[in-house]
Design a protein around this nucleic acid. Sequence first.
DNA 1: AACGCGGGGGA
DNA 2: TCCCCAGCGTT
Length: 350
Amino acid sequence: MSDFARRLIDWHRDHGRHDLPWQGSRDPYRIWLSEIMLQQTQVSSVIPYYTRFLERFPDVATLAASPVEDVMALWSGLGYYARARNLHRAAQQVMQAHDGRFPDCSASLITLPGIGRSTAAAIAAFSSGERVAILDGNVKRVLCRVFGIEGFPGEKAVENRLWTLAESLLPDTELGTYTQAQMDLGATVCTRGKPACMRCPMAEACVAARSGRTRELPAARPRKTIPRRSTQLAVVVCNGRVLVERRPPSGIWGGLLALPELPGTGTTLPAWAIGEWSAGQTPVALPPLTHTFTHFVLDIQPWRIDLTHPPAQLAEPAHQWLALDQLADAALPTPIRQILTRLQHPDLFD
DNA sequence: AACGCGGGGGA
DNA sequence: TCCCCAGCGTT
């Protein structure tokens, strides 16, 4: 066994995380769910979602048979909503192609939507002990530092090198422990900001630690200036309900409920929109907010429009009325939830 | 305010 | 095959 793997497994016994809700089960369904939620998302954020999700969808058959809207609603607030859609599709694929038994080998897992090479390996290692390498953000950071790998890990050539390295380090046994140990080391010791090298089992051998270069490794993503966009949203309120619109399946907030967008980028509401929605009432500008995505910054100007009578029919089939006291259960992205929560509790600052 | 994070899909 | 996209929490 590589010295790397041996030290990691020994370290994990006393210093790894052993109390996560998805540990202690070899059920690939549960492990799969946790791994999908953990993509791009920290453990502490995932835990309450994971618990709620399992209560509502205890097995793959239940998940596959449920409306995708229910899945989206339980995912609301977690981000990267394509994960939820893929999760639902994958559940149906398992029912169809695998007779309802969730696969536990990486070759089968990788054919399911939302599961790539690293996630397939993680699920397989945890549920069946298969000897396959993972390469998530934690592992990339650890390998770049310990072995002094130069270059941005998102770059193809660097990533290929990391995959080869990760495979060369695999132990012959204890794949589940080894895999968890890598994740734990990256998450609790070899962190991005201030790594705790004093507590690290690799410190003596680590290129970055020995040369004082933990800040330089792994190399940062090349900088790009991100664009700024602005949008105006209609907050049409009637009888304690608000008009919401189902977003298209892909793109920003894909599949979630959001507020209808008003054309124009200025700070005044276009005249035609006033006619269309407000039936002569004066729209009121609500406090604007700024939401930051990875690739752009979005300035949002919400306009409140109160209707005394609901329109005979909604303008678009994607529109529906959402009761303001049912926000908690709705599939809303974070900034929309913020606007509507503020609307219902004007005295709360959240 | 900038950064990091796995996989899908389009170029 | 490569590159762009996505939403939140952390720093």
